[in-house]
Amino acid sequence: MKIKFHHIILGLLLATMGCKKDNYDAPSSKLTGRLTYKGAAINVEYNQVPFELYQPGFGKTGAIKGTFQQDGSYSTLLFNGNYKFTIPPNQGPFMWKELASGKRDTLAVTVSGSQTLDIEVTPYYLINNTKITGASKVVTAVFDLQKVITDANAKNIEAVVLYINKTQFVSAGDNQIASTNIAGSAITNMNNVSISVNVPTITPTQNYVFARVGLKVADVEDMIFSPVVKVNY
């Protein structure tokens, strides 16, 4: 069959008629930030500490959920509008303000265009001045511990653990290759705490590992961490 001119016109007409705009643009305002305490970043386990954003006024009341990265940062794409930010109960190695009714406090966030919002929290402890070094198949960490919450909500240290892993994800839940822990009761001096761990044989061979120190607070599930360090040994 020969293609006639009016066939092409017809085809073009149909095509242009289908060119209607979608009803919504995808969300484009980026809300980013990190967990901080007086400017210091709070490091947590990857994908374990969740946060929730509620946007009231749209019928159903489900949350927009996300989790913090290892270095305590988060990012989420949102529509412009008013949101409430909160962290679910019993999550995170820090205190989150609770209202008198026992409900979790929320942080009002007005999103208009991309912006940065750091989340100020009060951790139970801080791991300061961490120095992680490696030599002859042993990774050693030296660090100071600082008890931040000392009032009635204070909690003891259950254990301090040095984790190493082949990849940059370093924690108990990330199939770490080795770890050493010190029970909280064995820590007498909070300064210059030292832990070392032997590096097992890695296949395929690599001459570096990623390491960080985790602190487990008694009766709190999530651990607080020092920043991830790449160590040659």
Partner: peptide
């Protein structure tokens, strides 16, 4: 939860 606001969430939720 959104169909029934009277349902309270689980402890860690």
């Amino acid at each position: 939860l959104s169909a029934n606001p009277k349902i309270v969430k689980q402890p860690n939720q």
